[in-house]
């Protein structure tokens, strides 16, 4: 048995979700190799080689892989798959786009977004927006999985694995990269931040979202999140959405500001260590998961909180 983890990167740096997927792989109990598929990605392979628990890094460097197009990247994974019993990636938009392709090309199912490793063949994963937890047993000779990064800590960086280059030529028809618009913000990364402040529909406008949420987040060194309603209304960019169909976070402290707590939102934050809810409706479902609930008008309470910190 050996596990291959596909590294998540933006062709400039290795991204944090990789170290969390490696921790999940450690719990499987087999030796771990990491695959870096990119272009001019030697530096990324060197970063991956430092991850503790990694025995070898495979580097596939090809211009078709420069923007992480899922068609050639999945082909690259399949090209080295013969040597592995387990193939996984973080369940980010990158991993989610690639791994089901790998599974289909290998003729097996994927076990999506595992939150716990029970054994080399048995995993827990949430379904129905986290309203139920399934224990899934996979018996195929190849197990393809994605890892919910928020459910695992990151491994450290004390390792020094060898890097091996693998030749690769893509053959599949592929999508073509045109451009990327980053959400900006510049604050801490939502997926790995220790504190998250999220705003909901109650903010009422993009201006008020910025005026109320941003100063509090800055004071706390927090990342900013949002409910779907806030994103749909244009108060916040799409990649701030927390929930069943957005990002799943589990920070030490999650502060929900004017968010009612629909199950689809709870799915993305209810495993946070400490949850604070500020909402004027005492019956809002968010209070059912909040460790500390404050029934108040956010336009008064939040500026007061920011000032007092």
């Amino acid at each position: 048995m050996t596990t291959l983890i596909l590294a998540e990167h933006d062709n400039a740096a290795l991204l944090g979700a990789t170290a969390r997927a490696v921790l999940a792989a450690l719990e499987i109990g087999a030796p771990i190799h990491v695959l870096v598929a990119g272009h001019n990605a030697t530096g990324i392979a060197q970063s991956a080689a430092k991850l503790e628990g990694v025995e070898k890094v495979l580097l596939i460097d090809h211009e078709s892989l420069a923007h992480g197009a899922p068609e050639p990247v999945s082909e690259a994974v399949v090209a080295v798959a013969a040597a592995y019993s387990h193939l996984g990636a973080p369940a980010t938009t990158y991993g989610k786009s690639i791994m089901p392709r790998v599974a289909a090309l290998l003729g097996v199912m994927q076990v999506s977004e595992i939150t716990k490793v029970l054994s080399a063949h048995s995993f827990e994963r949430p379904v129905y927006a986290g309203a139920a937890i399934e224990t899934v047993e996979a018996t195929a000779d190849k197990i393809v999985f994605t890892v919910r990064a928020s459910a695992f800590d990151a491994v450290g960086e004390g390792g020094s694995a060898p890097v091996e280059t693998v030749e690769f030529t893509p053959t599949m028809r592929t999508s073509r990269f045109v451009g990327r618009e980053s959400a900006g913000g510049g604050g801490p990364d939502l997926a790995s931040a220790k504190i998250v402040v999220s705003g909901g529909r109650a903010l009422g406008s993009a201006e008020q979202f910025n005026a109320i949420i941003q100063p509090l987040a800055e004071k706390l060194g927090a990342a900013i999140g949002a409910s779907r309603a806030a994103v749909d209304a244009g108060y916040a960019p799409n990649d701030w959405q927390v929930g069943q169909t957005g990002k799943v976070v589990a920070p030490d402290l999650y502060i929900a500001v004017g968010i009612s707590g629909a199950i689809q939102h709870l799915a993305g934050m209810k495993n946070s260590k400490v949850i604070v809810a500020i909402d004027k409706d005492p019956d809002a479902p968010i209070f059912a998961v909040a460790d500390y609930g404050l029934v108040a008008d956010i336009f008064e309470a939040v500026p007061e909180l920011t000032k007092a910190l």
Binding site: T92, T93, F177, E181, D239, K247
Partner: peptide, 12 residues
């Protein structure tokens, strides 16, 4: 496409 970090445009 809605991706982590923002929006990506591709052609097929």
């Amino acid at each position: 496409r809605e991706v982590d970090g923002g929006l990506e445009t591709i052609e097929m």
